[in-house]
């Protein structure tokens, strides 16, 4: 997958492209809007990550020019401004998603992948599997090593979200947003409590602990075997 990153802050660009490369993307990084637009118009990318405040040509104009030239790959907007107005402006201009700085890299990756899934039309599978743990979305049944596990509806949603992003870290904010539909984080760590319960049901009796906590960053479901 080829990804175009247009970002003038070198340090941000460095960790974003490093992370994206580790996740398997071929990343081209441009430091200003002019070069970025030139690349966008001439290279066949799959997705772009565009900062709004850019030298020479600002991000919104870049996206506008791209869209009016018939370039249709999805664009994730990065911005330090988080008012609803800015968000709406970014999305109506032709951006496909909007991420506010500072952001967790795991969230950026998840959003980029979601954009790709949407544009390539690959819908999520109805049956998710990680290290012997199987989750059937249609029948809403979960089993590990052939034994059925009873989950509450919210626990089911949480596990489904983790398994859809298997192998990738998801932050607490992302979980709050996708599982509870809350776009803020309560001061109390409500996600942690829920994850504990889920772990109890899924991992307690097994050597291979699937749900892992990455301190400070979030949670990941993966099999170490």
């Amino acid at each position: 997958m080829r990804l175009l990153l247009i970002e003038d802050d070198v340090k941000i660009a460095l960790f974003v492209s490093k992370g994206l490369k580790e996740a398997g993307f071929a990343v081209d990084h441009m430091e200003n809007g002019e070069d970025g637009l030139h690349m966008a118009l001439n290279e066949p990318y799959d997705v772009a990550v565009v900062d709004l405040m850019l030298p020479k040509i600002d991000g919104l104009t870049v996206i506008e020019e791209m869209r009016s030239s018939g370039i249709n790959f999805p664009v994730l907007i990065l911005s330090a401004r988080r008012t609803v107005d800015d968000r709406v402006k970014g999305l109506t201009t032709g951006g496909d998603d909007y991420l506010t700085k500072p952001f967790a890299f795991s969230e950026l990756l998840a959003r980029v992948q979601a954009l790709l899934r949407r544009s390539t039309g690959v819908s999520g599978s109805a049956r998710l599997e990680v290290g012997g743990l199987v989750l059937d979305i249609l029948s809403r049944k979960v089993e590990r090593a052939g034994e059925a596990i009873e989950l509450q509806p919210l626990e089911f949603s949480l596990l489904e979200y983790l398994m859809r992003n298997a192998g990738q870290v998801v932050s607490k904010t992302m979980i709050m947003e996708h599982v509870w539909d809350y776009n803020f984080n309560p001061e109390t760590n409500v996600v942690e409590a829920r994850i504990c319960h889920l772990r109890d049901k899924i991992d307690r009796d097994f050597e291979d602990k699937l749900i892992q906590t990455i301190r400070g960053v979030g949670y990941v479901i993966k099999s170490d075997q």
């Binding site: 500072p102 967790a104 984080n185 001061e187 990455i214 301190r215 400070g216 960053v217």
Partner: peptide
């Protein structure tokens, strides 16, 4: 530990 701590504190600041 330091990296994790930094992320936690930053999240607090952002909040």
């Amino acid at each position: 530990e330091m990296a994790a701590n930094t992320i936690e504190e930053c999240d607090k600041l952002i909040e």
